[in-house]
């Protein structure tokens, strides 16, 4: 078991709205690790779309991705990649 954390900055225009949160949850579901996302000290389940939307994270928000489990490193890398790609949003 290992724990991995990574801080990322949301760069997409609308922040963590329905589609980005859904993409994160879908990516998270592929891993066995427990995944969480936190903003300003509030930590929520990275596999729950609703909980991630409730963070109200806007463009420019700093998020911490945390995973705990055998595939923690891969899980964090996968979610980080999505955030960095700005969820493939068009501007």
């Amino acid at each position: 078991m290992s724990e991995v954390t990574k801080t990322v900055v949301l760069g997409n225009k609308y922040g963590l709205h329905v589609r980005p949160a859904t993409m994160l949850a879908q990516a998270a579901a592929r891993f066995q690790s427990e995944l969480s996302i936190s903003k300003d000290g509030v930590e929520v389940d990275g596999k729950s779309v609703l909980e991630m939307i409730s963070l109200g994270a806007e463009c420019g928000s700093e998020l911490i991705i945390r995973a705990e489990g055998d595939d923690a490193a891969e899980a964090v890398a996968s979610l980080e990649e999505l955030v960095k790609s700005r969820f493939h949003e068009e501007e």
Binding site: H17, E51, I53, S54, G56
Partner: peptide, 12 residues
Amino acid sequence: KGILTRLAKLSR
């Protein structure tokens, strides 16, 4: 954005 965040806070 605000509506969505508030709705999500309630619905969780």
